[in-house]
Amino acid sequence: MNVFVVGMIGVLTTMLLALTRAFMGPTVFDRVLAANMFGTKTVLLIAVSGFLTGRPEWLDLALLYALMNFIGMIALLRFSKFQNLASDEQAK
């Protein structure tokens, strides 16, 4: 069996686990962590599928997704701390 097929199955399984955490997550931070992890899983999915279909150039795409995930994560964390995106005053 191709090693990338095994990798793909592993990535999909971890995606399912991250989704489960995002569904159940009692606190906000469980969900933030799940969303962040899901972004990483998307990066891995694209990277593995690039090798699986014989196009390793997709690694560049995966890198861009990692940057994109970072922007959303900053916004989420900023919102959970300050309750809005504009001011630096901490929520009471």
Binding site: A22, R31, A35, F38, T42, L45, I46, S49, L76
Partner: peptide, 21 residues
């Protein structure tokens, strides 16, 4: 709605993955 906003992000990443595939 805060959790929904986060899950929308995940949904979008999923559809991006599907489109890439």
């Amino acid at each position: 709605l805060f959790a929904a906003a986060m899950l929308f992000g995940i949904f979008s990443l999923l559809s991006a993955g599907a489109l890439t595939m």
